[in-house]
Design a protein around this nucleic acid. Structure first.
Length: 221
DNA sequence: GACCAGGCACATC
DNA sequence: GATGTGCATGGT
């Protein structure tokens, strides 16, 4: 049932979205060519600048190795050296390998087959893979598999906190629920919204100093 | 040279 | 259950 609080948050979240969209325009995410590339990128970008991830993905492409089959056959040290620019290369080589094993064993290495299952089932399976947490799982679901699962990241938390919409200690799941319960379950909307939040975070909503000329300031007026 | 970047698992109290 | 720490590169 709809409460007053629900309605208010719906209005605020919708208003923020429109402000961001009109300021930055459509983002056309994810920056990747295939579902597999998006999944790899989602793991590589954990706590890491995207430009570093691009270098790592380019290394894989140059070796014509950006595929489940090729990467599954690589030794740890070979894979780690190729993804080195993305940082945490030993950890991430292991995490990629965990994902590749899962993809191979459960879906014959096919992202398409994975996408044929329902959202909650895939999400549960992804979260069991060591090295895939909620944000990485939701990034894969939304951007690689086109499932309506809202992605929460550090920028989302910071921006909502700065605007007094969420408390500092709310869990990933709770924060995701705020978006799920107050916006239509729209893949395209979730896709753009998260991308716009990242754009805002990168360019304006810095840890310190605080935002200058924030594009969504005054959204309550 | 410090700070930051589209997290996550694990140790320890 | 909460809190702390390791992982690592490259840009500002």
């Amino acid at each position: 049932m709809a409460t007053h609080n629900h309605t208010h948050k719906t209005v605020v979240l919708t208003e923020i979205y429109h402000k961001l969209y009109s300021h930055f325009g459509p983002q056309h995410w994810w920056p990747g060519d295939t579902a597999f590339e998006i999944a790899v990128g989602a793991i590589l970008t954990q706590n890491t600048n995207w430009t570093n991830v691009e270098k790592a993905i380019l290394n894989l492409k140059k070796k014509k190795s950006l595929s489940a089959k090729k990467m599954n056959g690589m030794s740890h040290s070979t894979l780690a050296s190729l993804i080195k620019p993305a940082g945490y290369f030993n950890v991430k080589a292991k995490r990629l390998n965990n994902f590749l094993t899962f993809l191979s064993n459960s879906y014959s290495g096919s992202m398409k087959k994975m996408g044929e299952k329902d959202l909650p089932l895939i999400r549960e399976e992804l979260l069991k893979v060591n090295g895939i947490g909620p944000e990485t799982a939701d990034s894969i679901l939304l951007y690689a598999l086109n499932k309506p699962s809202f992605v929460i990241d550090a920028y989302t938390r910071r921006i909502l906190q700065r605007h007094n919409i969420a408390d500092a200690d709310v869990s990933y799941h709770e924060l995701q629920a705020v978006f799920h319960e107050n916006l239509p379950r729209d893949i395209k909307l979730y896709n753009e919204y998260h991308a716009l939040i990242v754009m805002l975070g990168k360019n304006y909503c810095k840890p310190k100093p605080k935002c200058k000329e924030c594009p969504i300031e005054g959204y309550l007026a």
